[in-house]
Amino acid sequence: MAFLALQLLFRRLLLALPILLCVSALVFGILRLLPADPVAMSLPPGATAEDYEKLKQAFGLDRSLITQYGIWLGKLLSGDLGGSIFFRRPVSELVWVALPATLELVALSLFLGISVGVGGGLAMFALRGGLGEQALDGATTAMMAIPEFLWAILLILLVGVSLQWLPFIGRLGPGIQLPPTITGFLLIDSLLAGRFATFGSAFTHLLLPSIALAIGLAPLVMRVLRSSLLETAQDDYVTQARLRGISENRILVRHALPNAALPTISLIGVQGGFMFGGTVLVEMIFAYPGLGNLMVDAVRNHDLPVIQAVALIYCVLVLGINAVVDVAYLAVNPRLRLAGAR
């Protein structure tokens, strides 16, 4: 079973490769529309025309677009993402610091969003037809009408500034030392080094941004789960289980939920991808040093190599999460599971 799932995942990722190739060409093409001149911007004042030509050659910007794309793609495949024009460091170095931060944030946000979403969906179903359902329904409508980045600001205002419960700037509190970098994931590294104060600080810094992101996901999960539970509740096997005298809670968890979970899983795949987009602004607002912050800095400074690389990494992450969710969909689906076992 595990082997089968891995095989499926591998096949699914292979299918994503041509998409990724098109994505890279698209990113490259769009960014070459840029009216600003990255060479002129990275020269010190008082540079000569000769300096300009030299730098242009150094960046490879004097050759044809297709050659440039070819060179970029070739280097990309060998793991070389180029050099940042603004930060004057290799892009891969910047990315390796930022990527774990974003992954940590998204993982916690997904966890929060899915748990609250599933819990709320079950609650809405259990309270169906009553005032409780209407109240939860109203709450989801309100939650969905405020985008993540505004939730981020509101949370800072309420929990950070007024109540002062949680920190809202960066990844660690002031004066707390970084643990030695092993994985790049601050939560894991601090535990590995046995520094629980660092772990606590990193965790509390993650909370507000991930709550902001989770608010984008939870109401959608609640609504989709509720409506598919309502549909499954009409199915014959549920009636039959009820006639057999199985308790309502057991029917809900053991019989209705596995089938009703399928549309929710698809939804999480799509929204999980969008969540990476949400991190861009949320990270910027919380001054959280992840990919999104890197992207916004790069956009403001027209730092093409960084924009290209980070955009592409976002697409890899989205395609990756889609593939994982697709496989999970197959693994959870009771009908397909039976077919696989035979």
């Binding site: 994505v23 955009a311 697409c315 989205v318």
Partner: peptide, 11 residues
């Protein structure tokens, strides 16, 4: 669909 919409908008 491989792009998060915000990222595509920024690019």
């Amino acid at each position: 669909m491989a792009f998060p919409p915000v990222v595509l908008a920024l690019i």
